[in-house]
Design a binder for these strands. Structure first.
Length: 505
RNA sequence: GGCGUGUUGGUCAAUCGGUUAAGACGCCUCCCUUUCACGGAGGAAUGACGGGUUCGAUUCCCGUACAUGCUACCA
């Protein structure tokens, strides 16, 4: 049977790190087994629907290089891929469950349910939930006479359909990551399957769609494990038990300090992105930072996520997406959650930058240069990228480490020159820059030779004037070799920068 | 509270009963570098606790502790 997996996000906002990792594991598993990766939009909660979120999610997948084989826009053999457009199917199966006695209508108002809960919470050992212990005291088709139920239905009284979870049985599932996990059904509540607005809840929708779309392996976050018995029961009640996908509940990505799931708030608080790409809340216009915009390469981002909960056992940490698809093995996924480490994340990006050719780097860096007002010549940008890549961790570093190749820098460390300035140095720079004007050979070695010669003529030591020269050309105490810089900006610009600084001393 | 899941250095982690318990990030020291980095060489730092099983437990089992997830007509 062909492997089919799916990522099923709800379009409610930014795409979280953990979500991307779930996508990644789905994708890798599909590729490793020659299977299909499906994107399904779980937009069953009309109250939480956010316009633009669906497109945003797809853009994130595109950026990461994790394109689905079937999706709402791409289509596929199981259209539609948006649950809101599949409403009728869920209703049909909900009716089937009711008819078979596996589910029932419930007419309780939210207030009535709340009353039941508060009443039961007082009792130490109560479950305080709508379940086998309480359902017979509520307003539903199990407790009401058939005629009353029919009347209520005919009167269009709002109702939900709930699963009737059996008492005293053990529901077991075999998780690919955790092995056998079992639950006492008496402790599982009668989850709502169909809401009053006619939409299914996740519980019904995930089972129906996984069945209809012939999903063979279902990856999701560990937070879903407690509701897994409901899903297993549904597969059984719908008569599809032998086609139930294999479950894999992924460990959580935790916040760096303390414990708990990593949230958008943690990113804001600690100063790093949590979403794959910038997300703008359409209501408030508030922008939440994304890894793309802060300057991560997609491959580094994906690599970093893969290593959060998985490794190949060899100690190798840097992988291309292609290598990951070749080496990924679900057996090596961890059970425990991993704390997110932003420093390590940046290290991954640095590693990928070093492994990327200069042309590609120039292409990646360009938007960040342009955002700072620098329109760089392509050939020069490629050379600069190669020259400074080892001191770049994030893509914007190509600007901070290389802007002076493209525009005369502001001298921010003038003090480093003036502190030890004297007439001798003044004479040296005046003399050397004048000599440069007639120098034909502009390569770094020739420039340095000329420099050395003049240093001697003026009775100086090279070390006396190297730093001043750097400040003149770069503006600060950083950057690659000074003569390499002089070569790339050219003799004329070198002279100009020296002259400008001499004038301001 | 109940139920589920988890627990090797500060963090990511290897180990599939026998090791001086890898490696990486970060941190510290030194080297290289007439700047800043890269790079190189070192260093500090780990099996939550208590019982078993075993000739031998980080590894298997059971408790305890701690952490975390869930307990919505949200996913």
């Amino acid at each position: 049977m062909k492997v089919r997996v799916r990522f099923a996000p709800s379009p409610t906002g930014g795409l979280h790190l953990g979500g991307v990792r779930t996508v990644l594991f789905n994708y890798l598993f599909a590729r490793a087994h020659g299977g299909d990766f499906i994107l399904r939009i779980e937009d069953t909660d009309q109250g939480r629907f956010v316009p633009g979120a669906e497109q945003y999610i797809m853009d994130c997948l595109t950026w990461c290089g994790l394109e689905p084989d079937e999706s709402p826009v791409k289509g596929g053999p199981h259209m539609p891929y948006r649950q809101s457009e599949r409403k009728a199917m869920y209703q049909q199966y909900a009716q089937q469950l009711v008819a078979a006695g596996y589910a029932y209508y419930a007419f309780d108002t939210p207030e009535e349910i709340e009353t039941m809960r508060t009443a039961h919470r007082k009792d130490e050992h109560s479950h305080a939930q709508y379940d086998g212990n309480t359902r017979m005291h509520m307003k539903n088709s199990l407790t009401l006479p058939e005629a009353t139920v029919q009347q209520l239905l005919a009167d269009k009284t709002p109702y939900v359909v709930r699963i009737k979870v059996p008492a005293n049985t053990t529901v077991t599932l075999n998780d690919m990551i955790r092995g056998e996990v079992s639950f006492d059904s008496s402790l599982v509540d009668d989850k709502v399957l169909l809401k009053a607005d006619g939409m299914p809840t996740y519980h019904l929708a995930v089972v129906v769609d996984d069945y209809l779309m012939q999903i063979t392996h279902a990856f999701r976050g560990e937070e879903w494990l407690p509701s897994a018995p409901v899903h297993v029961l549904l597969w059984e009640y719908l008569g599809w038990k032998d086609q139930m996908p294999q479950w894999a509940h992924l460990p959580l990505i935790l916040k760096p300090d303390g414990n708990g799931k990593l949230s958008k708030r943690d990113g804001d608080r600690l100063g790093f992105p949590v979403f794959a790409m910038n997300w703008t809340d359409p209501k408030t216009n508030e922008v939440t930072a994304g890894f793309r915009e802060i300057g991560f390469m997609p491959e580094a981002f994906v690599n970093m996520l893969a290593m959060l909960g998985w490794n190949d056992g060899t100690g190798q940490e840097v992988f291309s997406l292609k290598e990951l698809t070749e080496k990924f093995a679900i057996e090596r996924i961890h059970k425990g959650g991993a704390k997110f480490d932003y420093e390590k994340a940046k290290w991954f990006n640095h590693q990928h930058i070093q492994r990327t050719d200069d042309q590609t780097l120039a292409r990646l860096a360009r938007p960040f240069m342009e955002a700072k007002g620098i329109t760089a010549d392509e050939a020069l940008l490629v050379k600069v990228a190669g020259l400074i890549k080892d001191r770049c961790t994030l893509l914007p570093d190509f600007y901070t480490q290389g802007h002076f190749f493209f525009a005369t820098p502001e001298v921010t460390e003038m003090a480093a020159i003036t502190e030890k300035w004297n007439a001798q140095k003044q004479a040296f720079f005046e003399g050397w820059s004048a000599a440069l004007a007639t120098q034909a050979n502009a390569d770094a070695a020739a420039l340095e030779a000329s420099f050395n010669e003049h240093v001697q003529q003026h009775g100086l030591k090279k070390g006396d004037v190297m730093l001043p020269l750097r400040i003149m050309l770069v503006g600060g105490k950083y950057g690659p070799g000074v003569f390499a810089i002089a070569e790339l900006i050219g003799i004329t610009e070198t002279i100009n920068r020296i002259t400008a600084v001499l004038r301001s001393i």
